[in-house]
Amino acid sequence: MAINFPYRPKNELERHGRGGEPRHGEKELTCPNCHRTLSESILENNYYICSCGYHYRIGARTRIEMIVDPGSFEEMSESIKPNDPISFPGYGEKLEKARRESGEEEAVVTGKATIGGIEVMLFAMDPFFMMGSLGSATGEKITLVFERAIEEHLPVIGWSSSGGARMQEGLLSLMQMAKTSGAVKRHSEERLLYISVLTDPTTGGVSASYAMEGDVILAEPGATIGFAGKRVVEAMTKEKTDRSFQTSRFVFEHGFVDSIVERSDERRILYELLSFHTGR
C-alpha cells in the first residue's frame, strides 16, 4: 500500500548514513511504502523510520524507551490483565496470540518517567496486542494514569494506537470510552496538561474518546486516523476513497491535529511543550 507523504522528511539515515552494521542472522523488515528491505538494527537506530519516511509501527515499550530519559521509566499497573468478562468465544486464544506477538499482557503500557528531567505520567498503546484494542483492563490502566497524574499534579502524554473498542468484551469495552473520557476531564479540570500523540492506527472508539481529547494533539506522519473504517465508508458511499483519506495529513488539513511530528523529532517537541507548561 502506497503512503502519500506530503514531503520527503529529514531523515537520520540519509544524513548520517547507516546507523549500524547488520548483526549476523538479524531480522530484516521490508517497508510497506517503498519496499526497501532494511535490517532491524538499522531501523532501530533510526526510530524505525524507513529512508522513504515511512514510520513503522512499533511496540509500546520501544516507543517509551525512544522518548523518555534513559532509565527513568517506572512502570505501573503491570498486574492489571485482561479477563474474559462476557465469556466470548475464542477470546482466550486471541489474548494468547496477542501476548506472543507483542510480549505484553495488555494493549497499553503505563507509568511515570522524565523527559529532559521533567516528570510526566504516560501511556503508550501497543498495536501488536490485538491492534491496540480498548478493553476493560486497557481502559482501567489509562484511567489510573490520569488519576495518579491528578494526585501528583503531573502532565500526561499518551500515544494512541488502536483499531477501536475490543468487541470481545462487549458493552464493557464501550464503557471504557466514557470512563477514560471522564478521567481526562477531571485531569483537565485540575488545569493539567494532556498531550495526545496519534500513531498508526488511531480509529474507532479510541479516536472518539481520549485520543481526541488532548490539550495538544500531535500525529505521526502517515498514520491512519479516523472514526469509521475506510472499507465501511466505501461500502456506505459506494465510492472509492482518495488515498489521502484518513491520513495524518487529512486530519491535519481538516483542523483536528496541532502538528504532524516525525518520530525522530518527537522527544524534542514533547520536551518543549512540557517546558512551556511546567514553567521550566
Binding site: 470510552m177 472518539a208 481526541m212 472514526f227 465501511v232 458511499t237 483542523g255 483536528f256
Partner: peptide, 20 residues
C-alpha cells in the same frame, strides 16, 4: 454516520466532545 464528509468534519472529535 459513516461517510467522507463526517470524517472530514471530525466525527471522532465530535463524539469525544459529546461524551466528555
Amino acid at each position: 454516520y459513516c461517510g467522507v464528509g463526517a470524517e472530514e468534519r471530525g466525527q471522532s472529535e465530535a463524539i469525544a466532545e459529546s461524551i466528555t
